[in-house]
Write a protein that binds this DNA or RNA. Structure first.
Lengths: 196, 196
DNA sequence: CGATTGACCGACCGATCGTGCTACTGTCGC
DNA sequence: GCGACAGTAGCACGATCGGTCGGTCAATCG
């Protein structure tokens, strides 16, 4: 990996962290440059525009999410173990402030009615996320673990809601009980699709 | 109501709308002044600082939420009808982009680890929201409609998640099916606390 | 060895940010 | 009819925004 590429990666690592805390709009070139130890212009040369920087940051966050949440889940046996691993990893990622998931959560409200490439990327990644969950459910149905009439998209949306509620409540209220409630909600949602 | 007060109210109405779309941080004095038809300084005189403006905007959004969602629900009979009205009003409020609810959803990620009066207000209002839901559940338990061992806080967090997932998915993906799924999730959550 | 190139910096641009200060305008009590 | 005062505008400020430009330094290559 050349010097440029490694610098770029280091910058993106910092960028994801900032974006997770301050939001994608709050990710400013000046502050990012300072945090990354580069000059504004030096950093800017790597991306060319703010939009490109935002896109790259979202992409980096996505990669981290895939590596730290999705892939470990896919390494588990299909059905409930896979789904549970996915949920568990996603949950602790949110709790511990892993930039990946949080970037999306912070970014979505900012861009949800502000057309552009960033919004398109967020929407596309979000769809992928929900699809991934749906496919895990589908696999569980094929395995006979889940009811044949279970609705994968329904479960995906419910799971997303469980994590979202946990994220907001935990981040804002700092109440550890929210984590327990999230797990309980997950178990309940799973119960409803489990084969009798 | 004096001229000042009515102008202030009109400004806040516009402010909530902008904050719901662009976020509280994206609510800029310049753009707000232009949208409201005042000069920057003329508008600024009403609030004195940006933080005060944000606080007032959050407060206004809260008032609207109370009037348009909470109070209509409280006018219903306790237990399920009340809870259902609350959920239904909340849902369509999010769908139709009523500024009230959206301001909170947009604002939370921006302020969740940025200490200050705005964050405190958001956290306090969020707690109130969850408490209100919890009390509705409690009332249903007292009525015998819900199981005695139902956990109000658990239900509150789950309901919050259902609406959050709907909000994000609908706003970002524009998929009408998300609304049906939200209703189905609500029914399922209700089933789990209903007295046998 | 000199020429080229990729990575980076300092200085700077116009625009906009939040925020003061001052002055005008209308309304109302006397 | 006049002073008081609330409401609003004009204007300017320092800071910061995204972005540009010319240039430096080290490594690479012929």
């Amino acid at each position: 990996m050349g010097k440029g590429a490694s610098t770029r990666l280091a910058v993106l690592e910092v960028a994801t962290e900032i974006a997770a805390r301050r939001g994608l709009a709050g990710l400013t070139i000046g502050t990012l440059a300072e945090s990354a130890g580069l000059s504004k212009s030096g950093l800017f040369a790597h991306f060319g525009s703010k939009e490109e920087l935002q896109l790259a940051t979202v992409g980096h966050a996505r990669d981290r999410f895939v590596n730290e949440v999705l892939l470990p889940a896919l390494a588990q046996p299909r059905g409930e173990p896979r789904l549970r691993t996915f949920f568990e990893r996603w949950l602790v990622a949110c709790r511990d402030g892993m930039p990946a998931g949080c970037v999306y959560l912070s970014a979505k409200p900012e861009f949800d009615d502000q057309p552009g490439r960033v919004r398109d990327q967020l929407a596309s990644d979000y769809r992928d996320l929900l699809d991934s969950i749906g496919q895990m459910v589908q696999a569980g149905i094929a395995e006979g673990q889940f009811r044949a009439d279970a609705d994968p998209a329904q479960f995906a949306q419910e799971l997303d809601g469980i994590v979202l509620a946990f994220f907001f409540a935990y981040r804002l209220l700092r109440d550890p009980a929210t984590e327990t409630r999230a797990r309980r909600a997950f178990d309940a949602a799973l119960d409803r699709i489990r084969a009798t």
